[in-house]
Computed example of a mutant assay.
Amino acid sequence: MATSTRRPERREQPLSRERIVEAAVELLDTAGEGGLTFRALTERLATGPGAIYWHVANKGELLGAATDAVVAAALALEPAAPTAPTAPTGHAGSPQEGIRAVALGLFEAIDAHPWLATQLSGQLSRSPSGPVAPRIFESFGRQVGALGVPERDWFTATSVLVHYVLGAAGQNAANAASARALGPEVDRAEILGTVARAWGDLDPDDYPFTRAVADQLREHDDREQFLAGVDLVLTGITARLR
């Protein structure tokens, strides 16, 4: 009996850099950084490697573009020229609400894309002049300026927010990845319960604080705790203004 191999669907529109980046994000979400290869891209896009290399030079450039695309979507910002920090845009309400919105957008993007935290950390350290770092700093910095922070303190205040948000969101993503590695039969409540019991059994003389917060660990909500941390940072910034 004759068999046939299913061919990739023919593309109806010309290949673009945007479509390549979109496909790269899809591969990263499903297969991780190791699964993002130009061979996998050519199969997914039903094209040849030459067509992809016309738009993207190498994997490093592709990872950078994918990271920037996800961050831009999370911040709901177009890649346009920056505006003055004293004129916040993109978020209605107070500067505090704008900062929470930016922070939550990044938190949820990192949670939804397990590969993003590592890429953000690498790009902010290796390529601070690339598009990702200015995009994140601009989003927070506009709101920091609108809070009334003196210009001499803009960089420090914004850096504190960026470090907290990316650090906390990255740790949350790492925790989620560790939980997934244990298998679908193990849920978050079970993991937290195990850790809480271990904390509760610590020596009371050596770990009085850790024992005291064991039940809070068991019951905490990651998203609420993250936003509470943002509020603590904002409280410190506004207290200095007073």
Rank of each mutant, 00 (worst) to 15 (best):
A112P: 00
E185Y: 01
L192H: 03
T3R: 15
Y164V: 03
Q216T: 13
L62S: 03
A189V: 06
P88T: 02
G148I: 07
V160I: 08
D29P: 02
P82I: 04
G105Q: 00
D222G: 14
L62V: 06
L15W: 03
T37E: 10
G167C: 09
G90C: 07
G148F: 09
T194K: 12
V160M: 06
E18S: 12
A24M: 04
P208W: 06
H91W: 09
L217R: 11
W115D: 00
H113N: 06
F226S: 09
E224D: 15
R218Q: 14
A169C: 11
A72I: 03
R19V: 09
R19A: 08
D68S: 14
F107V: 01
G90Y: 03
S159H: 09
G200I: 06
T30G: 15
G93D: 05
A101G: 01
T30P: 10
H163M: 10
L104E: 08
T210A: 14
R39C: 10
F209E: 10
I191D: 04
R223L: 06
H113G: 00
A92I: 11
W199N: 05
F137G: 08
T83Q: 14
P208E: 08
S121H: 11
G64E: 07
P49D: 11
A109P: 01
P85W: 08
P204E: 10
P95Q: 04
A157N: 05
A228R: 13
A46E: 14
G48V: 15
H163L: 08
V25N: 03
A181C: 06
Q123M: 14
S125Y: 11
A168F: 12
A76T: 06
A84Y: 10
T156N: 11
L77R: 07
A176F: 08
A51W: 09
A109H: 01
V213I: 10
A112C: 00
A92V: 12
P128R: 03
I20E: 01
Y207F: 13
P14K: 02
Q225N: 15
T5Q: 14
T158H: 02
T238L: 12
G35H: 10
E26V: 05
A92E: 14
V25R: 05
L182W: 07
L104R: 09
A92K: 07
G183S: 03
P49K: 14
G35L: 08
E97Y: 04
P128W: 04
T210E: 09
M1R: 13
V21Q: 00
D231I: 14
V165S: 05
L104N: 01
D205R: 12
A112Q: 02
P79A: 04
A117Q: 03
D153H: 13
Y164P: 01
H113M: 01
N175C: 05
A179G: 08
S178H: 05
G90K: 02
T42E: 11
S4M: 13
F140C: 03
R7W: 10
E108Y: 02
D203P: 04
R188Q: 08
R242C: 07
I52M: 13
F155D: 13
Q13R: 15
V195K: 06
G145R: 11
